[in-house]
Design a protein around this nucleic acid. Structure first.
Lengths: 225, 225
DNA sequence: TCAAAAGTGTTAGATTTACACCCATGA
DNA sequence: TCATGGGTGTAAATCTAACACTTTTGA
């Protein structure tokens, strides 16, 4: 193969994953202590290097799979982070992705193996490199997205109560909403289906379980929260 | 210096600039025919490679300066584009940025030198590599941004008429708006200052010229269009 | 004198917000 | 029997959208 761009400098390229989960009415991110030098022991996102024969997105999916054992997670690019000295070891440009996961689906064994934990988004410690900035940007993007697309269901079990859904919105947006107004908006969205099933976990009386009907959503697409 | 990431593969990294301008009531992008192999002669964005000793953002600013002779342009990242075969020559990952320019400020000599031209966003031809996708994404981001931040003034002369401003919004959003409702919203924003100057270019009667008062905006920040 | 763009308010409809009580159940 | 979370409707306020005529002036 002919070499076209012979004069140019090549650069290390990595991906970093901001994995959001919802647990105990809080929005959380999955982070761990860095296991390599430089920066060993610092809080860090989970990441990996991009290989020459895979797209950045593939690298991100591979990294997510390594960490969670899951494929086809909801994942969106946050952006490229490219300060010269962002990594103390060597020049590394990183492309951040955020992903959404239902915490209950996450394999505890893998979690233990990678020594990562769910940390409340409001209590994220100081992190390695520019990872705080990445988390912040990811959260902003996710907050925007959740207003216009039904991504909340990625963070919940397939059956959920309206109170769970509401608490999720409150956690993501950082402010409480009125229960009746919230439920009115849900009623207008036919693709959020009421089932006949009752959840008895969270209350004595029990609450109806709902599910997201993806097919119906694809026909209607009138999402607004 | 110690090498930390010895095993990893390095990749060519470039930046591509989507430069938006506003001319004849149309939103336009600045593009030219590619001057190097592979892809010589195809329509292309203006870009450049990222050097090892500069941030991606610096590379983008340098590239914009090369093309326009201007510094401190409004510029935002669109994202990283990283398919393996996006560049037919060699594996190149590119980070796209969009920038806003007042067309009248753009040096014609530089434009001729680089052989770039303003093309209506609605009539962008098929382009090299994934540049159509980059433009599309850039436009989406810009459309979102213009709703909540006063970036429109980057595309206009420092003095402008309300009709110009309205036409700009219409061009960006791709739909017409009601003149009276538009002007009502403008009146609520004190940082869009009416001057005593009259523009006689666009009408016999003449129209008041307005200016964006940045200091006043920074105090109020209640932008909404 | 007329064509072309500038400028200006009102009203109906839609959307959003605020708000309080009864229900069902397990402990 | 009572504490806990589940479930429900209405009215006021705000915001949005639709709409038409007069003014100025250069050609």
């Amino acid at each position: 193969m002919t070499q076209f761009y012979i004069e140019e400098q090549k650069i290390l390229l990595s991906v970093d994953c901001i994995i959001f989960g919802f647990e105990q009415n809080k929005l959380k991110v999955l982070i761990g202590k860095r296991k390599m030098d430089p920066g060993r022991g610092e809080w860090s996102l989970y990441g990996g290097f991009v290989r020459n024969d895979e797209s950045i997105e593939d690298a991100a999916n591979r990294t997510l799979f390594e960490l969670t054992g899951m494929r086809n997670m909801y994942m969106r690019q946050v952006g490229a982070f490219g300060s010269v000295n962002r990594d103390p070891g060597e020049r590394v440009v990183s492309v951040a992705y955020y992903a959404l996961i239902n915490v209950a689906d996450y394999n505890e064994k893998l979690q233990a193996e990678h020594a990562v934990e769910w940390v409340d988004i409001a209590e994220v410690p100081q992190m390695f490199s520019d990872h705080n900035e990445m988390i912040c940007k990811a959260r902003q993007l996710m907050q925007q997205k959740i207003k216009t697309e039904p991504i909340s269901f990625q963070l919940l079990p397939s059956l959920f109560t309206l109170t769970q859904l509401q608490r999720l919105y409150e956690a993501v947006n950082g402010e409480e909403v009125d229960k009746r107004n919230f439920r009115k908006r849900i009623k207008d969205m036919d693709f959020i289906e009421k089932t006949e099933l009752i959840d008895k976990q969270s209350s004595k009386r029990g609450a109806y379980l709902y599910r997201f009907n993806k097919k119906m959503y694809n026909e209607e697409k009138n999402f607004k929260l």
